[in-house]
Amino acid sequence: MFAEYTASELTSIFAMQGFAGLILFSVFVLMALGLAIIFGQMGVINMAHGEFMILGAYITYLTSNLFAEYAESLFSGYFFIAMLLAFLTTFVLGAFVEWSMIRHLYKRPLDTLLATWGLSLILQQFYRTVFGAREVGVTLPDWLMGSYPLTDLIEVPINGIFVMVITICISVGVYFWMYRSRWGGQVRAVVQNREMAGAVGINTEKVDRITFALGCGIAGVAGSAFTMIGSTGPTSGQLYIVDTFLVVVFGGAASLLGTIASAFTISQAQSTMEFFLSGSMAKVLTLLVVVGILMLRPQGLFSLKIRH
């Protein structure tokens, strides 16, 4: 299948598809980071994670409309405020969901899965009622438009670079929060031994709530970044949820580094194959390989030596 391309064309195809893969990678990482915190650290399956992401996207959409209407002069910077708002909204909603639903189900992980699926159905219908079934997109400020020519064959879009920068910032932030802050230490302590952590004076309920809310908040930021590269519909979140769970499981649930590595592998494999096969076959092959590897190595790529 490579025969009809010359060597330099092949290089640029791989470079361009590689870059498309990097954008997909950013979306995966942003979604998977939130999920890795909630699922990897707390063991809670949040099927509504995609809907939290879409909530962030809709908040961004609303903010951009507000700025276009009332503060035209500040429009070029609306995105940062939108991202903050998206984080706050999903954080608060996440805390509420934890308080009202999740905390009653910590002993029954499979039931959490069903309950959060119910939540995702409700949120989807809510979006459909409020924003309509059609997909909406935001208007990008001028400085995010266009693309940057790397060589005469390879061009990279600026909004893609911007999303990647956000991804890197958030990943670094999560890393410091989880592994270098006092709070992250408390979270890891609760994960490793809940009773003991409680006995040494950590408020485990509060840790649970903030952890869950933070995972949701990161999903909101992910959604906000998602609007830069794609349009948002009520069911967009559901399209990504299976891939994201596979990313987290494939990476080894409790390892942030593993999550990033597996997001990279899956997204690169998928986007490179997409050029040569049809999109659906590329996806089928990638998922099959991932499922196959998980059957052989259920603990994922990177794993802590803990049995949950």
């Binding site: 063991g43 399956i45 992980p109 499979l110 899965l113 299976v242 769970f245 596979l246 499981v249 049809s278 659906s280 076959m281 996806k283 089928v284 998922l287 099959l288 991932v290 499922v291 998980l294 059957m295 259920p298």
Partner: peptide
């Protein structure tokens, strides 16, 4: 448990994409 649920769900997704594709 949870892992089995996720894997079976992924298989359902794969089969659907395959049939449609």
């Amino acid at each position: 448990g949870v892992y089995f649920a996720i894997i079976t769900q992924a298989i359902a997704a794969i089969l659907t994409i395959l049939i449609i594709g």
